[in-house]
């Protein structure tokens, strides 16, 4: 089943200068709280020995995966993959901010908005797309590193950039039965042969390891799935069984109690 749109970010790594205009623009456009961000520019660090150095910046945000692990754990469906656009969105009115999805996201791009008690993340500025504008980060990108467009449309900026790319890398998480199939395409990486992206792609919070990471499931979510669901299924099954036995018995033996 083909979607109406297949929105994707294409990021020309060679053009990113780590100026962070995208981050500020995003913060303002989406009223992101001061202690949170929806968008990162990952500094891979100065590589090499003086004076033969290399420094690469990898912008990232929600990858709007084709198979997002975050939507799977959302109990209410508050976070979902939009049927028309393919964007992974959060319906804040339906979200209770439990944070299952925050732990499940292999890219650490979700955050809990403390004040509103909900989860938030990049929505590709859906509110801007509606009125025909590009996402705030893309619109203001000084180096023209960030592109956004519909991959179903062969002449969209994103499609054209992918067609002309020297190389294309995605940070796919493919393990433990997952294949996120992310929708951020990194193009034009310098010295591709020397770069092992997933290994180099250290997250902003260094203690949580390299990205993408395995989806984490909280204890309560795990407990619910692995303990409570089977137990309750068994319980409900058992009680159903009991009533079925009685009912059958009743049918066979007839309502002898009430004969007068």
């Amino acid at each position: 089943m083909k979607r109406k749109n297949h929105y994707a970010f294409v990021i020309d790594v060679a053009r990113c200068i780590d100026c962070r205009a995208c981050q500020v623009a995003c913060s303002v456009e989406n009223h992101v709280p001061m202690e949170n961000t929806r968008i990162w520019v990952q500094d891979l660090g100065v590589q090499g020995e003086f004076p033969n150095l290399q420094h690469i910046f990898v912008p990232y945000n929600c990858m709007h995966c084709e198979h997002p692990p975050c939507t799977e754990v959302c109990v209410s469906g508050a976070t979902y993959k939009d049927k028309d656009t393919g964007l992974v969105l959060v319906d804040q009115d339906a979200c209770i901010g439990c944070g299952y999805c925050v732990d499940a996201c292999p890219y650490n791009v979700r955050y809990l908005d403390k004040k509103r008690g909900v989860v938030d993340k990049c929505n590709a500025c859906a509110q801007r797309l509606e009125v025909g504008l590009e996402p705030a980060c893309v619109a203001t990108c000084i180096g023209g590193s960030r592109l956004f467009g519909d991959l179903n449309d062969p002449v969209s900026k994103a499609s054209v950039a992918l067609q002309n790319a020297r190389n294309i890398v995605r940070l796919d998480y493919e393990a433990n039965g997952h294949d996120t199939d992310p929708n951020i395409y990194y193009i034009n990486l310098p010295n591709m042969e020397q770069l092992n992206m997933p290994e180099l792609f250290q997250p902003l919070v260094s203690q949580s390891g390299a990205l993408p990471r395995a989806p984490k499931y909280t204890l309560s979510e795990q407990g619910w799935k692995h303990v409570a669901v089977p137990l309750l299924a068994a319980g409900i099954g058992a009680s159903f069984l009991v009533q079925a036995i009685y009912f059958t018995k009743q049918l066979i033996e007839g309502e002898k109690e009430f004969e007068e």
């Binding site: 439990c98 944070g99 925050v102 407990g223």
Partner: peptide
């Protein structure tokens, strides 16, 4: 958030 995480299994 932790309370909300626990609340769900408790609820169901």
């Amino acid at each position: 958030p932790l309370l909300k995480q626990i609340a769900q299994p408790v609820h169901w």
